[in-house]
Lab assay of single mutants.
Amino acid sequence: KFNKERVIAIGEIMRLPNLNSLQVVAFINSLRDDPSQSANLLAEAKKLNDAQAP
């Protein structure tokens, strides 16, 4: 279950337009470290993406 959620979360994070490459890598590394947190990490990535919108 967590592996599928992690793959989906990674794909979504990679498509967030307002994150820089270091932020994307940090979120992906966090997902690798704890796949059970996929939903929480994706939500945090989306919040950061929205906050950094031009």
Rank of each mutant, 00 (worst) to 15 (best):
K1V: 04
F2T: 09
F2A: 11
N3Q: 06
N3H: 14
N3E: 15
N3P: 03
K4A: 10
K4E: 15
E5N: 07
E5D: 15
E5H: 05
R6T: 15
R6K: 14
A9W: 08
A9V: 10
A9G: 03
I10T: 05
I10D: 01
I10S: 03
I10E: 15
G11H: 07
G11A: 14
G11Y: 14
E12V: 13
I13E: 01
M14C: 11
M14D: 01
M14W: 04
M14E: 04
M14F: 05
R15W: 03
R15V: 05
L16I: 01
L16V: 00
P17E: 06
P17Q: 07
P17A: 08
N18Y: 14
N18P: 00
L19E: 00
N20T: 14
N20G: 06
N20M: 03
S21K: 14
Q23K: 01
Q23N: 02
V24I: 13
V24R: 03
V24W: 02
V25D: 08
V25L: 11
F27S: 01
F27C: 01
I28C: 05
I28T: 04
S30C: 07
S30G: 03
S30W: 10
L31P: 00
L31G: 01
L31S: 02
L31F: 04
L31N: 00
L31R: 00
R32V: 15
R32N: 15
R32C: 13
R32F: 15
D33L: 14
D33R: 12
D33Y: 10
D34Q: 08
P35H: 05
P35C: 15
P35T: 06
S36H: 13
Q37G: 15
Q37E: 08
Q37R: 13
Q37N: 09
S38T: 08
S38M: 15
A39W: 14
N40R: 12
N40Y: 10
L41Y: 11
L42G: 01
A43H: 09
E44R: 08
E44Y: 10
E44W: 11
A45L: 02
A45K: 00
A45H: 01
K46W: 06
K46S: 04
K46M: 07
K46Q: 04
K46Y: 10
K46R: 11
K47S: 10
K47V: 08
K47P: 00
D50P: 00
A51M: 12
A51Q: 09
A51T: 09
Q52P: 02
Q52K: 04
A53T: 12
A53E: 08
A53W: 07
A53S: 11
